[in-house]
Design a protein around this nucleic acid. Structure first.
Lengths: 341, 341
DNA sequence: TCTCCCGACGTTAGCGCTAACATTCAGCGT
DNA sequence: ACGCTGAATGTTAGCGCTAACGTCGGGAGA
């Protein structure tokens, strides 16, 4: 019923054309939704395509159009909540728009590794690149390498050389710290991420500014590395010093570590010390006690990213930026400082 | 110094050939490491390639070789620890071997969505597919759809129709439960994942078998959905009933939720109740108290996966399977049941 | 009635590469 | 000296598609 000559080779455009009684070019026109095809012809061709199970050959198409319909996504720590969800957002938006997404992840963020990955994308002749590595090294590398294709970076500070989609980290940090200030805290420590991470730097900055605006003195800053373990160590340190009534952690995992440290040290949260996290990963609501934290719309960020990339791909480099605003989520790790303190 | 005719078009093989004073085919031979090229010629060609910054056009190459050098990775809940890390393992192994990796993630695991995603990979004419969706629906869909390219599934049970790389879930569950039995527990509950998830089913099975082997009666089984929230509800239920001295949770997040529930209910862990998780995500060591759990080598799993896929791509479908063994990680949430119980 | 135009197709010429087949030219045995 | 072999190259013919042009009718305007 279906096939005339039972050859194993997958059907090509010519086969469809023959079956529909038209030329291969008409098939191409149908596929590309050209206007000048009569409805009857279009229908015949579509039927033939369905009957043969024809699929257009992407390589041949790419060869002549010079576009691969692929975008490259470069990430680093994809096993973490934020980047993983941003990736998901990008992927969904890309697929919606008919793009394929190729991914590469950096096991270490060094200029060489970055160059390699970018080179890998160029080999694939991607039509655009999304970079989800908010790292100072990445920023420097990106400034050095002039890209042949549009690129949008997630989470960088605004810079006219780069198209950027970011969460307003400073605002997020501000939200967190101001919440503590409003509660009456005057000594608010911060466990930061590695300072060469752009997000970490922005959160440190937001923390300091908010403190200053509230007329409070600088407080203790402990450098963490995003891991629960570093949060734990920071928590121990803070519990030992006992100089502080609140802690703002640069992510939920470090907050988790701190929570454990406080628990071990016999400090009650929030009665003895308040804690605010950052990210609002789903587990945060189930920490002991449930964590007050800052929610970032990662999936939306990914979608925006893709939107900007498509714009740049159509109109050339824009250097535009799109920033999404985080929201504070108050749960049970924050309370006014105890009077006895 | 570098280019003769300053045209904007990217260099093609012919340009390299001209510069090196050879034919384009010789350039191709150098690029493909053919044996019959003299060392001097090879060197001249390589120099020309470097000088022009030549990069071979993947589309043209794919068109003629009929291989895209791309493998598709299909995932579902990539924002979770296990799948995300498996993906990373696959990605690294693939890139090592010179393959590109294209990813698609399922926002919902339905036959239609699966078919779509697989279709999407076929459009891209991937050379192979890795499926990281250990879901019953996926298994059924895979049995229905006969794939045109090699496919390896992560985490399925062994089945000769499918090439599979998996963690031995039954053993993992056994490890966890046996540990509790050895401690002296006789009433060991289980919070499972959704039972249409293959991993969840295997862990339930492992839990039951180990109980039976130890001569213990069936205990209470609560169905969760992997989320901390469901673990929390289960914990509340268990605390309320008070019929059990230990809990085996099918993942760390549910264990986290349970930990919080117990804490709220005034149950001390591990004195009043022991808890074992599953996955050993990095945070597990920083729960309050640190969680005893089962470690699965996700990255290794990803690498094995890729290895099998390459094998199948070279030799046709193998239906082989490769299983990695999990390890128990004992921390502080497990102890002998209190005598007063 | 005769243009002229334009919609609906068909035909042709590559895109940049690799596989398969030619070609050339040493070196070797007889 | 003569082929003969085989390594090192060159030449040719597509892979399957789209862009650019060619063709061919049938209405609208003169």
């Amino acid at each position: 019923m279906s096939v005339g000559s039972e050859i194993s080779r997958p059907p090509v455009m010519e086969d469809v054309a023959k079956l529909a009684g038209v030329s291969h070019q008409t098939v191409s026109r149908v596929l590309n939704a050209h206007p000048n095809v009569s409805p009857q012809t279009r229908e015949r061709v579509e039927k033939a395509i369905a009957e043969l199970g024809y699929r257009r050959n992407t390589a041949a198409r790419s060869l002549v159009t010079r576009r691969s319909q692929t975008i490259g996504v470069l990430g680093s720590d994809m096993s973490h909540y934020g980047p993983a969800n941003t990736l998901l957002g990008v992927e969904q938006a890309a697929r919606d728009k008919g793009y394929f997404v190729s991914m590469a992840s950096l096991s270490e963020v060094t200029p060489a590794a970055i160059k390699d990955a970018l080179e890998y994308f160029m080999m694939q002749s991607v039509d655009g690149i999304v970079v989800i590595v908010p790292h100072e090294t990445m920023f420097e590398s990106l400034s050095t390498i002039s890209m042949a294709v549009p690129l949008v970076a997630v989470g960088f500070g605004v810079d006219e050389r780069l198209s950027v989609a970011a969460v307003n980290q400073r605002m997020g940090a501000s939200l967190a710290v101001q919440h503590l200030v409003d509660l009456g805290h005057a000594a608010i420590a911060h466990v930061s991420g590695p300072p060469d991470w752009i997000d970490a730097a922005a959160r440190i900055d937001g923390w300091q500014r908010t403190l200053a605006q509230a007329g409070l003195a600088d407080s203790v800053l402990i450098r963490g590395d995003w891991s629960a373990e570093s949060g734990y160590r920071a928590g121990l340190e803070l519990a030992d010093a006992g100089s502080v009534t609140a802690l703002f952690a640069a992510n939920d995992q470090m907050a988790l570590g701190a929570l454990r440290a406080f628990s071990e040290a016999g400090l009650r949260v929030p009665q003895d010390i308040s804690v605010v996290g950052y990210d609002d990963q789903p587990e945060a609501a189930y920490f002991v006690p449930p964590l007050t934290t800052v929610n970032q719309g990662f999936k939306e960020l990914g979608a925006r990213c893709m939107q900007m990339l498509l714009f740049d791909m159509a109109n050339g480099h824009s250097g535009a930026s799109s920033v999404v605003n985080p929201k504070l989520v108050v749960r049970s790790t924050t309370a006014p400082p105890s009077v006895g303190q």
